[in-house]
Design a protein around this nucleic acid. Structure first.
Lengths: 118, 118
DNA sequence: GTAATTAGTTACCAAAAAGTAAGTAACTTA
DNA sequence: TAAGTTACTTACTTTTTGGTAACTAATTAC
């Protein structure tokens, strides 16, 4: 008898597929942090964002922002200023990640408290 | 004038730190999927979990489970059966990730619907 | 003139993550 | 006896990711 996957409720299957999809889009070290900074601080220029996120390099930030733009989570706007500036902000789709972000923030804070109290 | 970080509300700062912490613990390609499978399906044996998660290899699963055990999100129990079996389940701390998992699942489902409808 | 600002890009290198295939050891089933 | 089950581990290779430093080009401040 060959072993098969467990048969599970369609609801669970759908959730698990959803989670796998989120991982594809939001995978990597930086995406949640970039999205969160834009969520909490609103529209930011490239260098503002770069300074805001500890240890990220412009190369990596640039690449991650491109990925997020492709997936329509972030909008890029070139401003016609003296030294050219570029502003990034969340799209509506990007903003719709707020529940995930808020829950992550809450969990992280609680985790830190439980660990340090021990 | 040297450019500094933006000064932001303490609440935001705390959330952002929390999110960075979550990333440290839950980073990588597989952790959310492992946790989610254990969340939706309950206690699972090593090979059940391995079959359940598409494309994961035993080597990687083994390594990820060790990480999760170290961070006390998963419990490992050796069962005294004929061919030895090992069961994994979420700890209370692991279960406390449920809000994040449920929100990710929801977002992923909605995202897929909006994309495919276009 | 020099340095600093803007937003990146490029080349090069190192480290981390992941994939593949095979092996171990004890036991069961055909 | 041979193959399949359990839970992994090991060695090896490839891919991905990330980091550093330098560079562009235009503009401003000193």
């Amino acid at each position: 008898m060959k072993k098969q996957r467990l048969s599970i409720p369609e609801e669970c299957r759908a959730s698990l597929t959803g989670i796998a999809d989120v991982q594809e889009i939001m995978g990597g070290k930086w995406k949640y942090l970039i999205i969160s900074n834009l969520f909490f601080l609103g529209k930011l220029k490239f260098m503002e964002l770069c300074r805001q996120i500890d240890k990220i390099s412009p190369k990596v930030l640039s690449k991650e922002l491109k990925d997020l733009e492709i997936n329509q989570l972030v909008n890029r706007e070139i401003c016609d200023t003296k030294p050219i500036t570029v502003e990034y902000e969340l799209t509506d789709l990007g903003k719709s990640l707020h529940n995930i972000i808020l829950e992550m923030g809450k969990w992280g804070i609680t985790y830190r408290n439980t660990i340090t109290k021990k």
